[in-house]
Write a protein that binds this DNA or RNA. Structure first.
Length: 543
RNA sequence: GCCCCCGUAGCUCAGUCCGGAUCAGAGCAGCGGACUUCUAUUCCGAAGGUCGGAGGUUCGAAUCCUCCCGGGGGCGCCA
C-alpha cells in the first residue's frame, strides 16, 4: 500500500473525529521541497478550514493532536508549520516497503496503471509523404509517438500505432514526374524534387516501371527500414488511396452533407469549419472537382473513430493550424473533439561540426534520418529526441550525440545499468546469491544514498502516469537521469560487497540494486532505449 | 493583422497544465578536490539567478489573468 494512502485515510478519519463535514473530496499528500518540513506534508488544514469553521492553523493543530494520539503506520512525528501545513516525519520503514513493492512487481509490473483499461487508443505518427526518405526532423515525431504509445500501454490502454500514407495527390505526382525526368534525362519539373536520393532512385528504377507506383514502393520501403532501425514498428499502414477505392471518402462527404456541414460557393464545396472554432471555412472539393487534402483526411479520421475510443495525432509545428479544422470536422460528424488529441512537436534543427544544416526535402538539402541513426546509434538517437519537451525547439548536434564522452546523458544512464549488471556478475562469481527477500533485513538500508534511491523509485509510478496524461515522455527521461545520478552516488559511497561489508548488508544492497535495475529497465523501455549489460571505453577494449 | 511554441545560471534545458513553506533545480563549460576498491563513461565541493518586462488576482505567483518586448513556426481551391 502506498504510504500516501495510509496518510490520507488517517487524515480523513481524523477530520471526521473533529466533526468536519463535509469531508474534503481530495486530500493531497506532497513531499515538501524542504526536507526540514518532514517526509510528507498536507495542506488539508488550509483547504478544509472553511468547512471546519476554524482557522487553518488551529485546525492543523487539532489534526496533529488526533494523529499523534494514534500514529499511522511508519509515522514518528506530526508537526504543524507555517499557515497550517501538517507535516509528517516517517521511519525509514516506509521506504523499505517501497523496495518490497518494486521487486515484487518486477519490471513488468512496477509503475503500471489501470487508468486505460478498456480504452483503445490509436496513435498516428510520422505519416510522412511517400516522396522520399525520412529526414532528421521526422525522427523527433517518430520517437515521440512510439514512446507515447509505450506510455499508453503501460497505463493499461490498448494501443494501435498507425502510419497514414498520403499516397495520392499533387506531391506524389510531382515526385513521380521528378523520378521520370531524371531517368529520362529531361529537366525536373517546376516545384519538383531535387534531392540526391532522386538521382539514386531514378538510376535504380527498372526500364518501363511506372514511376509513381515504383517510387511509392521505394519511398515506403526506405521509410519503413529506418523506422525499424529505430525499433519503431507500426501495427498498421493506412493508405489514403484505399479510401477512394472503398468509397470512404464519398461516405464522409455524404455524412457531412446530411449534417448540413458543407455548402457550395464559387464552384467549390466548403466545410463550415468556422461554426466550430476555426477562423474560416475550408475547401473540401476544389472547383476543378479534385479533393483537397482535407476531405480524405476527414474521411480518415472518421474511419479511425470506428476503430478506437481515443485518437492521438502527432503533428509537426508546421501543421498546428490544421488542428482547429480537424476538430471542427469531427464535431460536425458528431464526435467529441476532445477524443481527438493532437500533439504538436516543435522543430528540430541539426548541427554538424558547428554548422547548422537546413532541412528541406524540396531543395534537396537534408540530413536523412538514416544518417542520424548510423552516426549516433539507435539508443543515443532515441534518448536525445526524447530529452526535451516537444514544446521546445531542439538543436540536435550530431557530433555531440555521437560522442561517447561526457555531455551525453544517454551513456550516463546506460552506464548505471551496466554497473548494476557488473555487480550482479561479481556477486555470482563470489558465490553470493540473493537470499529470498522476506529473509533479508531491509532496515539495514539507512544511508542517505540508499534512501535517496528508494525515494526515486517511489516516484516512478507517478512519473509514468503524469507523462502519459500530459503526453510528455521527456518526463521519463528526466526521471531516469535522476535515478542514474542517485545510483552513481550510491555506487561511489556504498559498496555492495567486499571487505568490511556485513553479509546482511550485502544482501539488502543486492536487493536495492535489483530495485534500481527494475526502475532503469522500466524507464529505458518506455523510451525505447536498451539497458546494456556492460559498457567499456573504446580505448580500453573489452575486458 | 490573426494563431501556436519558446524566453529560468555563461551555454543547453527541467519545473508552469493543477499557485504554496524567507535554499528556484539539473547537465555542460569553467574553478578546486577524490581511483591499491563491485567498471573514474564515476563521485564530492565552491561559484554561478531582477525566472524577458510591466501591471493585476491571491494570505502566497516561475506557475493564473491582461498588455508589451524578443526568438521560432503557421496562416492556399498545396500536403
Amino acid at each position: 500500500m502506498d504510504v500516501r494512502d495510509i496518510l490520507t485515510e488517517s487524515l480523513r478519519s481524523a477530520l471526521g473525529d473533529l466533526g468536519v463535514d463535509p469531508l474534503p473530496t481530495g486530500i493531497t499528500i506532497e513531499r515538501p521541497a524542504n526536507p526540514e518540513h518532514g517526509d510528507w506534508s498536507t495542506n488539508v488544514a488550509l483547504t478544509s478550514a472553511k468547512a471546519a469553521g476554524r482557522n487553518p492553523r488551529e485546525l492543523g493543530m487539532a489534526l496533529a493532536g488526533v494523529l499523534e494520539a494514534s500514529p499511522p503506520m511508519h509515522v514518528t512525528a506530526v508537526e504543524v508549520a507555517g499557515p497550517g501545513f501538517v507535516n509528517f516525519r516517517l521511519a525509514n520503514s516506509w521506504l523499505h516497503d517501497v523496495l518490497v513493492d518494486v521487486v515484487s512487481a518486477g519490471s513488468d509490473g512496477w509503475a503500471t496503471h489501470t487508468v486505460g483499461t478498456g480504452l483503445s487508443v490509436m496513435v498516428e505518427f510520422v505519416s510522412a509523404n511517400p516522396t522520399g526518405p525520412l529526414h532528421a526532423g521526422h525522427g523527433r515525431g517518430a520517437c515521440y509517438g512510439d514512446s507515447l504509445a509505450r506510455l499508453y500501454q503501460r497505463c493499461g490502454h490498448e494501443v494501435t500505432r498507425e502510419f497514414y500514407i498520403n499516397d495520392r495527390g499533387a506531391q506524389m505526382q510531382l515526385f513521380a514526374d521528378s523520378l521520370a525526368a531524371v531517368a529520362g534525362g529531361t529537366d525536373i519539373p517546376e516545384g519538383g524534387y531535387h534531392g540526391h536520393y532522386i538521382r539514386e532512385w531514378a538510376a535504380e528504377m527498372p526500364e518501363g516501371a511506372d514511376p509513381l507506383e515504383w517510387g511509392y514502393e521505394r519511398a515506403l520501403a526506405d521509410q519503413r527500414r529506418v523506422l525499424e532501425s529505430l525499433d519503431i514498428h507500426f501495427d498498421s499502414w493506412f493508405s489514403e488511396r484505399s479510401m477512394i477505392d472503398s468509397g470512404a471518402v464519398e461516405e464522409a462527404m455524404s455524412d457531412l452533407r446530411s449534417q448540413d456541414a458543407v455548402y457550395e460557393d464559387d464552384g467549390a464545396i466548403w466545410l463550415r469549419s468556422s461554426d466550430h472554432g476555426d477562423d474560416k471555412d475550408r475547401v473540401l472539393v476544389k472547383s476543378d472537382t479534385e479533393f483537397t487534402y482535407l476531405l480524405p483526411d476527414v474521411a480518415y479520421h472518421r474511419d479511425k473513430f470506428q476503430r478506437a475510443d481515443r485518437l492521438v495525432n502527432v503533428w509537426g509545428a508546421d501543421h498546428h493550424g490544421y488542428v482547429a479544422r480537424m476538430h471542427s470536422a469531427m464535431q460536425a460528424l458528431g464526435h467529441d473533439p476532445s477524443e481527438l488529441q493532437v500533439a504538436i512537436t516543435q522543430m528540430v534543427s541539426l548541427q554538424r561540426g558547428g554548422e547548422e544544416v537546413r532541412l528541406s526535402k524540396r531543395t534537396g538539402e537534408m540530413v536523412e534520418l538514416a544518417e542520424v541513426v548510423d552516426e549516433v546509434g539507435t539508443d543515443a538517437a532515441r534518448f536525445t529526441y526524447l530529452l526535451l519537451s516537444v514544446d521546445s525547439q531542439q538543436t540536435f548536434d550530431l557530433d555531440l550525440v555521437a560522442s561517447q564522452v561526457n555531455e551525453n546523458p544517454v551513456f550516463y544512464v546506460q552506464y548505471a545499468h551496466a554497473r548494476i549488471d557488473s555487480i550482479v556478475r561479481r556477486a555470482a562469481e563470489a558465490g553470493m546469491e540473493r537470499t529470498p527477500l522476506d529473509e533479508v533485513d531491509l532496515s539495514l538500508l539507512g544511508h542517505q544514498r540508499e534512501l535517496a534511491l528508494l525515494r526515486a523509485l517511489h516516484e516512478l509510478p507517478d512519473t509514468v502516469l503524469r507523462a502519459c496524461r500530459e503526453r510528455a515522455p521527456h518526463q521519463v527521461t528526466t526521471w531516469v537521469r535522476e535515478l542514474a545520478a542517485s545510483f552513481h552516488g550510491f555506487y561511489h559511497d556504498c559498496r555492495v560487497m567486499g571487505d568490511g561489508i556485513d553479509e546482511g548488508l550485502s544482501q539488502a544492497r543486492l536487493w536495492l540494486v535489483e530495485g534500481v535495475r527494475i526502475g532503469l529497465v522500466v524507464a529505458l523501455d518506455l523510451l525505447g532505449v536498451t539497458a546494456p549489460e556492460e559498457m567499456w571505453r573504446e580505448e580500453d577494449g573489452v575486458g
